[in-house]
Design a protein around this nucleic acid. Structure first.
Length: 524
RNA sequence: GGGCCGCUAGCUCAGCUGGUAGAGCAGCAGACUCUUAAUCUGCGGGUCAAAGGUUCGAUCCCUUUGCGGCUCACCA
C-alpha cells in the first residue's frame, strides 16, 4: 500500500470485498482458467493478469493466497484450427480430448500442452506465477468422481436450473456427465444408465459397443462445462474468479454456475466481469509467433513487462480498451514515465492523483518497486537515438553519460521494444537512416553548397552555443546564402537521411553528435 | 426478448466509496526566421444524453426515456 489512506484501486477494492464476503480465512483461493483449444490471446490474458493483481492486493494485506490456473484440457477437439499444419491429420482427431491431439507445430507432446506451454513460459516474464491445474489429469485420476456422482444425484435440480434459460429444454434422457468412449476415445457416446451409485453404462454411437464403467476408477467421464465450473469452485474452495462478459450475462455460464453450485453444496466466488480488449494499429502485420491472433509475446515485442502490466492495472476491468501498435505506443510510454515520475516524487500532482498513480505503479512492477526510476528519456527521443545508431543498442546507450548501472538493464529492454516497434510498426514518416559513405552524393547547387558549409561551421561549435544562438545560426546558414529556410531544411534532410523531412533539425543534429553530422556534411 | 456497459470540451478519454469538472490530441497566440504525426510557453468555462427523485448539495446514488455498443439464450 502506498499510504495510510485507503486505496481506491480496483484490485484493492476487490481484495477487500473478498475478505468481507468470504470472511477471515487461513487461505484465499483465487482462480482463473481457460480451455487450451487454441492460441491463448491477449484477451484471455486480461483474466490472468486481473486475478494476479487481486492476488497481489490480497497478499499485501497480509493474506495467504493460492492462485490457481485451471487448464480445461479435457475438452473436446471440436474443429481444426485454421493456422495449424497438417489439417487433414488433425481432422481425424475430432471429438477426442484435446490432450490426445498431436501438436503438429511440434511444440509439445500434444496440442493442448503446446498451447499451455506457450503461456506458462511467458507468464513469469510479466510476474505472473500461478499454480497450474490440469483438468484432464484430474478427471483421468478420478479426482472429480464425487463431483460427478453429486451431479448425477442432483440431476433433476441441475436440469431445472439450466432449463430456465434454454430455448429448448434438455432432453428427457439428458445426463449431467459426458463420456469419452474407451473404444474410440471420442465423446460420440450415449449414456444408457446410472446405477444410482458409481456405475455408468454407455454406448459408443459409432461402434455400437456398450460398456459399464465405475466413476471411481474410469478415466473417461467428465462434467460438461456448465457443471464442471461450479464443481471446481467447491472442490478448490474458490473465493474469487472473474469472467468475461459472455459468461456474466444472465443465462451465461457464470450465471447458471452460481445457481448450480448450490447443488454441489457451495457458493459462488466473488467475481467481476472484464471487458474485451481490442488491437489497434497493426495494419496487415499479423502475429509472427501465433497465427492471426495477438498474444502476450506479441505485446511484449513492443511493450516492456512493466508497461504491459501497467496497461491492465491502470484500466478498470469492465472497460474495453485497445492495445495499440501505432503512434499511440509513444503515448503509453510517456504515460508510464509520468506515472513513474509521480511515484518517485519527481513530478508534483495533487494528493488524490498521486495516491492513484502510485498504486498503479506498484502493481505494474514485476519484481518489486525498483530503488530508482528508470532512465527518463522521452520514448520519441529514444527512437531517434536508436535510429541514429541503426539499432545498435549498446552504442545508443553509450551516448547517455548520466545513466546509472541500476538503470541499464531496464533501458536495454526498453530499447529492444523501441527498435522492434520502429522496424515493424512505426509509420514510414517516422523512420530514417543516416546516410554514409556508401550512399551516392546528392547533387546540389553552389548556393546550396555554400549554405551547407555555413551549417558545417555552426555544427562544429554547436555544443558550446546556447539554444537560442544555435537556432539562430542554423537559420542564418540558409538566410546568409539566399536560401529559403523551408528549402534549406529539405536539403539538409535529404543529405542526412535521404528524405524531405525529419526530426526537428536543431535538436536532431545535436543528438546525432558533431562527428556524425560532419562526416556527412563534409562530403559536400 | 433478457442482461451488462457507455453517452463528459472539436476528437480520444480521466474523473467511481456525492461537494457544481480535467488531461492528451487538434486549434489559436507567442518564442525574429520553424519544415515535421518529431522544440518550448500560454490559452479549455463544456445544459457532464433527457426528465424526474433522494440529498444541505449529484457528472458520480435511485427511477424512467432516448441513442450507441456488447453479450446470453448451442458449445465451451
Amino acid at each position: 500500500m502506498s499510504d495510510n489512506n485507503v486505496s481506491t484501486h480496483w484490485a484493492d477494492i476487490y481484495a477487500d470485498k473478498i475478505i468481507r464476503e468470504k470472511g477471515e480465512k487461513e487461505v484465499y483461493t483465487c482462480a482463473s482458467g481457460i480451455t487450451p483449444s487454441g492460441t491463448v490471446h491477449i484477451g484471455n490474458f486480461r483474466e490472468i493478469i486481473s486475478v494476479d493483481l487481486v492476488v497481489k492486493a490480497l497478499r499485501e494485506k497480509g493474506k495467504n493466497v493460492r492462485f490457481i490456473y485451471s487448464w480445461d484440457d479435457y475438452d473436446v477437439f471440436r474443429k481444426v484450427p485454421k493456422n495449424m499444419p497438417e489439417p487433414e491429420l488433425l481432422a481425424t482427431y475430432l471429438r477426442k480430448p484435446i490432450t490426445l491431439v498431436p501438436d503438429t507445430i511440434g511444440r509439445a507432446d500434444n496440442y493442448a500442452r503446446g498451447n499451455e506451454l506457450d503461456v506458462e513460459q511467458m507468464l513469469p516474464i510479466v510476474g505472473v506465477e500461478p499454480e497450474y491445474i490440469y483438468q484432464a489429469a484430474r478427471y483421468r485420476n478420478s479426482e472429480y468422481a464425487q463431483g460427478m456422482r453429486t451431479a448425477l444425484e442432483k440431476r433433476d435440480e441441475i436440469r431445472a436450473i439450466l432449463d430456465e434459460f434454454r430455448t429448448t429444454p434438455l432432453e428427457e434422457d439428458w445426463w449431467p456427465i459426458s463420456v469419452f468412449s474407451n473404444f474410440t476415445d471420442k465423446d460420440t457416446t450415449t449414456i444408457l444408465d446410472w446405477d444410482g451409485e458409481w456405475n455408468i453404462t454407455y454406448r459408443d454411437d459409432e461402434t455400437g459397443q456398450t460398456e459399464t464403467v465405475d466413476l471411481r476408477t474410469t478415466s473417461c467421464a467428465k462434467l460438461p462445462w456448465r457443471l464442471d465450473w461450479p464443481m471446481r469452485w467447491v472442490q478448490e474452495k474458490v473465493d474469487f474468479e472473474p469472467a468475461g462478459k459472455d459468461h456474466h450475462s444472465e443465462g451465461g455460464s457464470f450465471d447458471t454456475s452460481r445457481k448450480v453450485v448450490q447443488a454441489f453444496g457451495g457458493e459462488a466466488p466473488v467475481s467481476f466481469q472484464y471487458d474485451f480488449i481490442s488491437i489497434k494499429g497493426r495494419g496487415g502485420k499479423i502475429s509472427s509467433s501465433s497465427g492471426e491472433v495477438v498474444s502476450l509475446p506479441d505485446v511484449l515485442e513492443v511493450y516492456t513487462p512493466e508497461i504491459t502490466r501497467y496497461m491492465f492495472a491502470g484500466t478498470r476491468p469492465n472497460t474495453e480498451f485497445s492495445i495499440s501498435f501505432d503512434l499511440d505506443v509513444l503515448k503509453i510510454y510517456e504515460d508510464y514515465d509520468t506515472c513513474e515520475r509521480i511515484y518517485f516524487g519527481l513530478q508534483e500532482v495533487n494528493d488524490k492523483r498521486k495516491a492513484k498513480e502510485k498504486r498503479i505503479y506498484e502493481l505494474s512492477q514485476v519484481n518489486g518497486v525498483p530503488s530508482e526510476p528508470c532512465y527518463q528519456i522521452p520514448f520519441r527521443h529514444l527512437c531517434n537515438l536508436l535510429q541514429l545508431h541503426e539499432g545498435d543498442i549498446d552504442k545508443a546507450i553509450a551516448t547517455l553519460s548520466d545513466i546509472t548501472e541500476g538503470q541499464r538493464e531496464r533501458l536495454e529492454v526498453r530499447c529492444k521494444c523501441a527498435w522492434n516497434w520502429i522496424t515493424t510498426f512505426a509509420p514510414e514518416d517516422f523512420k530514417y537512416r543516416l546516410t554514409n559513405d556508401q550512399d551516392a552524393l546528392v547533387e546540389i547547387t553552389d548556393q546550396e553548397r555554400a549554405a551547407v558549409h555555413a551549417l558545417t561551421e555552426v555544427v562544429k561549435v554547436m555544443d558550446e552555443l546556447d539554444n537560442k544562438e544555435y537556432t539562430t545560426r542554423v537559420y542564418d546558414s540558409a538566410k546568409d546564402n539566399g536560401l529559403d529556410t523551408g528549402d534549406f531544411f529539405k536539403l539538409i534532410y535529404s543529405l542526412m537521411i535521404g528524405k524531405d523531412k525529419g526530426p526537428k533539425l536543431g535538436p536532431f543534429l545535436q543528438t546525432c553528435g558533431k562527428e556524425k553530422v560532419l562526416s556527412i556534411l563534409q562530403r559536400y
